[in-house]
Design a protein around this nucleic acid. Structure first.
Lengths: 234, 234
DNA sequence: CGCCAGATTGATACACATCAATTCTCGTGG
DNA sequence: CCACGAGAATTGATGTGTATCAATCTGGCG
């Protein structure tokens, strides 16, 4: 019935794990200048400043040079959902709908390259490979969002935390140890939980020796295997 | 602080409501032949057949001609999440990652146009406007997925049902009355709930006179205002 | 030092899941 | 035509994972 080999599934899973978080733009082909480089203007935002608001006209898109950005939306009564975190190399704000659907905010102090949408559009017309890159980008972000849907719709608190930590460790490949740029509230709003549940769940993992941390923002993954078993899902 | 006008927000909200469900490909420019038309091969799938499996090599993409398709993933222990429903005009299976991340299944009997990814890629190289259409497509689907994240992460059962029904009524603009192509289990798995909760919540809405239905698959929205108040969120 | 925001931990509440019957519809065969 | 069985939907009784409410603890900073 299932026409796929196991190795194909394994490969797919590996790639999916890699993109649990939004992923960097593909590196520009070998030794050519990145056509985006000519178009960008450097901008900085302090921690917790808003880069653009949900509902604003979508006249710019951005590429992260340093720091972390969150994409989020807040309801009238204060509930918040974070759709993604972006770090160095990620691109955000590309939409074909005239208005941003989610706000973008600086989680830490950030530096960005800011692009005029109109100019990028022109550049894309002139350079098909650039168009492809943006396509790849959106495709990656879409796949990532779909994985996030499974997490929010069907996973338990422990599974969500495990997936989140594994996603981070894969992005910042520094073996086992990760730095959380965001506070517990941000983690909670990304995972569809409350701060308390995030804190309790992480404490439980710590008690079991699966992870450890002295300060809340520096976490060591001691048993990735155990985490992967928790994150299971697919 | 918030630099946006109310009308901008209103416009953005309207457009966001419109794309709660994945949205049709933009109509081909006026009187020109759609470049995709030459590339597609018609295929049919019976209700509940799988169009492609998660993990399969992503060698084709599809455009729905009739019927409804679901994009979904099932965990080892049987939990399922539906990421999207696609209907006539929607495109699916476009990914830049070699393997499909989610399976696609026929909710009803469906007819599709099937495209070879390689050929579409070539066509895109030859025709920049086609590239733009696909970009728009992905951008729309991404925006839709982000709205879905808010729904799964932060909304109550009643809010999810209300959003879902409003999303449907906007797609099939037949004023007030909608046809559910999918069963309650599909709705539940799209909304991150159980069948029982979907059923109970819809019964409650019926008791209040906000909606009505004799057969489960034909629902009449009597008070869209009340539903919108429920769906609130943003 | 004393303040404050963030993190952690504890006690309790509740929304939704789970388990368990019915009921309803529809297709199938006697 | 009706009996029968199977799958889907609904409804009810109960359980539980996480939210909520409420302290307490911690580290940075004026």
């Amino acid at each position: 019935m299932h026409a796929t080999t196991n190795s194909a599934i394994t490969a797919a899973r590996a790639s999916m794990a890699m993109r649990l978080q939004p992923v960097s733009i593909a590196p520009a082909p070998a030794r050519e200048a990145d056509p985006l480089d000519r178009l960008g203007a450097g901008v900085k935002f302090e921690k917790n400043r808003t880069i653009y608001f949900e509902g604003d006209a979508a006249e710019h898109c951005y590429r992260v040079k340093s720091g972390t950005v969150r994409l989020c939306k807040v309801t009238e009564d204060g509930r918040r959902q974070i759709a993604a975190f972006f770090t160095a190399g990620d691109m955000l704000g590309w939409t074909d709908h005239g208005f941003y659907g989610f706000s973008a905010e600086a989680v830490t102090d950030v530096t960005l390259e800011k692009f005029s949408r109109a100019r990028v559009d022109d550049a894309v017309k002139a350079s098909p490979p650039l168009g492809r890159r943006i396509l790849t980008l959106l495709s990656t972000q879409l796949a990532s969002a779909h994985d996030h849907l499974l997490l929010l719709g069907r996973m338990t608190a422990a599974e969500r935390i495990a997936s989140f930590l594994l996603g981070l460790v894969r992005r910042q490949h520094k073996g086992g140890s990760i730095e959380l740029a965001m506070c517990r509230k941000d983690v909670a709003d990304y995972l569809g939980l409350t701060v308390e549940t995030v804190s309790r769940t992480m404490s439980a993992l710590k008690r079991k020796g699966i992870i450890s941390f002295a300060e809340p923002e520096y976490v060591q993954l001691n048993q990735c295997g155990a985490l992967e078993r928790l994150a299971m899902a697919a």
